[in-house]
Design a protein around this nucleic acid. Structure first.
Lengths: 112, 112
DNA sequence: CGGTATCCTTGGGGATACTG
DNA sequence: CAGTATCCCCAAGGATACCG
């Protein structure tokens, strides 16, 4: 990352505890609130709401309300959201190959 | 990211407030503690130390002590560290093209 | 120079209860 | 179902002072 400020801004999005997990589960199409909650292990209702709002505000995803009873709200990645998802793909690639090594590195470090 | 646990582990590294900034400034070669501190705007001495330790533990960088007076300690990316840096490059790419749009999206969202 | 040690504050985020 | 509202806690991290 060339510009420190840019780098910091991306981290504001990417560094979030839940944001990328949400982006990730949305990659195969829209999901409803409860479906998201089920898909993301350990997230609280509050943090799901908060993070979804942030991502909506940033134009990463859209929130669509169907005005029926019971309510039906679905979330879907925008074009920008999909490009973000693609931009993080290499990071997944990386983690798949290197996380084991990192585990070893930690173990080695701790055994001293 | 396919496995939720993997995704979470990467976020443990990548989601850190300072880690990627450190990796970034080290990409052109080793730096000493004070040089790092100067390069990363706003980081406290404490957080620089803590984050460097974490990255060393994870095998992302090496810490080399030259036993002289005054002390001379330099930090350098490992091979893994460099691959991590490369894996985050697309994210920088992405931020350069999309951060402006995100700014607009936020402004639009707030004007409602 | 390159750290530790200590103190202290803030806000991220969980748990729970309530609602249109 | 899809949230809000409220309370509360803890740990991330800043500021400061000291040290080999």
């Amino acid at each position: 990352m060339q510009d420190p400020c840019q780098a910091r801004e991306v981290l504001g999005i990417v560094g979030d505890k839940w944001a990328l997990l949400i982006v990730r589960v949305l990659k195969d199409g829209p999901l409803r609130f409860t479906e998201l909650k089920r898909s993301i292990d350990g997230i609280s209702q509050r943090m799901l709401t908060v993070t979804l709002r942030d991502l909506e505000r940033d134009g990463i995803l859209t929130r669509t309300v169907r005005n029926v009873m019971p309510p039906h709200v679905s979330y879907e990645l925008t074009t920008i959201g999909r490009t973000l998802r693609e931009a993080t793909a290499p990071l997944l690639e990386w983690s798949l190959t290197h996380l084991p090594k990192i585990g070893e590195a930690r173990a080695a470090y701790d055994n001293r």
